[in-house]
Design a protein around this nucleic acid. Sequence first.
DNA 1: TATATCTCCTGCGGGC
DNA 2: TGCCCGCAGGAGATAT
Length: 285
Amino acid sequence: MPELPEVEVVRRGLARHVAGRVVESVTVKHPRSVRRHVPGGDDLAARLAGLRVEAAQRRGKFLWLTFDEPDVALVVHLGMSGQMLVQPADAPLEKHAHIVATLDSGSELRFVDQRTFGGWMLAPLVEVGGTPLPDAVAHIARDPVDPLFDPDAVVTVLRRKQSEIKRVLLDQTVVSGIGNIYADEALWRAGIHGERIAAKLSRPALHGLLTEVRAVMGEALLAGGTSFDALYVNVNGQSGYFERSLNAYGREDEPCRRCGAPMVREKFMNRSSFSCPRCQRRPRP
DNA sequence: TATATCTCCTGCGGGC
DNA sequence: TGCCCGCAGGAGATAT
């Protein structure tokens, strides 16, 4: 389940293995993986052919490649299960390889996606807040590891939200890159229950929460990301190790690593939330 | 305008 | 053994 640290690991891999390479051809094998590219897979393939990759960039969970042709970017979202693999052209094709780009290095860049929540699209680059972004990413807020991330501004936005704090953390237009796993981890570290109303939390509490978000993501990055199964891997097909460091996510009935109380699992927003009933007090009804 | 809910999808595991 | 069902969850669409 790729969140910011996992996507950043993939971006670094693309920068290392794909930047400087020319896309010779592209084959779209599953139309759903290009559903956000409205002109269709044939158009995407035709426009990518012949372009030289210049850089791999990222905001939140979105990443994109820029080319020697200015003003266009290949926007990639990994969704739930997307992988960007750089493989030798003669390597067996993965079962869910939905897009294959042949590079002039003799390798292939393959988009593998079991659950097809992710995809590729081409988008024009636009200027947003002094930063060039694909227009499809323009609505996404800066993420906590962005050098221009402004915690004061984010706290001001949070203080206006009448929703539960976990719901707001998952809102990519407020702060990007946070998914279910790191939301639970940061809330556990900050000792805040995810159902607390954002606007009712103090500014110091919200600053503390954002500090924990940055900390947990930084640690996950150092570990190469989190892996629960074979669905998340870097461009070489390797998994990260941060799963071993998780304090909240997936620890139902296990003792809280801070106070020893059994961790609880609750349904929230149609997904699971994990928290400590003692360290993270529920809001009063 | 702000907030909440639904939908898409596939593989796995548990229950029967 | 085989079938059915629930679960996992990011983000856009739709509803309130």
